[in-house]
């Protein structure tokens, strides 16, 4: 069975101040039906750009996108104009970074459902109202919310509305880009468990993007980690307790855990992420890497460690790291 989303060799260039800057380079991953893939990385690592590129939301005058993005087997990057417009939201819906601003402030909630349904050919307002009420019910909001304006809702309610909107056309894929950053922890937990339930119920796939690796490890099925515009490691959640890339290892360790002693917490990664206009030669992580060696002067390939479950890593020394792991842990 083909994956819902198949991304291969994706790259993105931004045009900024007359220069062309590569912000995403050689990104490949796939999401199976009903699967939730977590994409993690520091701010500026390019993870949100991947989301915008996959959803075709980068403006051609601001950015160029290349590589392959297939949604259910069809080439999504090749779509233009009316064809692209009609495919949007049916194939891929978006729950964007801040729910606070994702709703149009001057029209009520029903009209934000209605205009989208109308744009996709559902023109019966009475039916649309029923549909919108059903969708709100899915996210535990009462029908009256339809008559409210965004400013009359709380942050958590707005995020639920946005999720209900995303479900409207039964998309195969929902991209969630930092969907809960603006919410407090309790609301965040409520909403994420709701998303999990709905996913089991409705069977859509999710690309979940966040800088919070800890959250991903608890929530998703598989995780991919980005550094400086490239994927550095991907694998099932369980894999990351023995991750093979020095960057992912440092990330996992930099998270506080209830089982750790305070002194062990937040070791952090010395150094800062590279300036993408002058990325380091060879491996982009080598200036900050504790395993750095001569071989790191040449760029490492995106290499599969195992096919099923898929584990891939971008590090020339992953074998040595794995062996060291085996010797230290066992």
């Amino acid at each position: 069975m083909q994956p819902v989303l198949h991304v291969e060799g994706l790259w993105v260039d931004y045009f900024t101040r007359g220069r062309r800057l590569r912000v995403v380079q050689d990104v490949s991953f796939a999401i199976e039906r009903g699967e939730m893939l977590g994409l993690a990385g520091e701010s500026g690592s390019g993870k949100s750009t991947v989301a915008l590129a996959v959803a075709r939301l980068l403006r051609p005058e601001n950015a160029a996108v290349g590589g392959m993005v297939r949604l259910n087997g069809t080439d999504f990057l090749a779509l233009v104009g009316e064809g692209l417009r009609q495919t949007r939201w049916k194939s891929v819906a978006l729950v964007s970074q801040s729910a606070m601003n994702a709703l149009n402030p001057v029209i009520n909630i029903f009209r934000q459902f209605d205009d989208m349904l109308t744009a996709h050919g559902y023109t019966d307002a009475v039916q649309n109202r029923h549909r919108a009420a059903e969708l709100l019910d899915l996210v535990d909001l009462p029908e009256q919310v339809l008559n409210r304006f965004p400013h009359q809702l709380s942050g958590g309610m707005k995020q639920r509305v946005v999720i209900a909107l995303a479900l409207a056309l039964h998309p195969d894929l929902i991209i969630m880009d930092e969907p809960t950053t603006a919410l407090d922890v309790i609301v965040e937990r409520e909403i994420l468990s709701k998303v999990k339930t709905l996913q089991r119920q409705l069977g859509f796939s999710v690309l979940f993007i966040t800088h919070d690796l800890d959250l991903l490890l608890r929530l998703t099925d598989r995780v991919a980690i980005m550094y400086a515009g490239q994927l550095v490691e991907t694998g099932p959640v369980g894999h990351f307790s023995r991750s093979l890339h020095p960057y992912s290892r440092a990330l996992v360790q930099s998270f506080p855990s209830l089982h750790q002693h305070a002194s062990d917490r937040r070791r952090g990664i010395p150094g800062a992420p590279p300036d993408l206009s002058h990325p380091p030669a060879g491996c982009r992580f080598h200036p900050r890497c504790v395993f750095v060696a001569d071989v790191c002067q040449t760029a490492p390939a995106w290499e599969a460690v195992s096919e099923d479950p898929l584990i891939a890593v971008r590090c020339s020394r992953w074998k040595e790291i794995r062996d060291e792991f085996v010797s230290t842990v066992d």
Partner: peptide, 8 residues
């Protein structure tokens, strides 16, 4: 959180 302690 992974965010590097960037100077504000």
């Amino acid at each position: 959180m992974i965010d590097a302690p960037s100077a504000s």
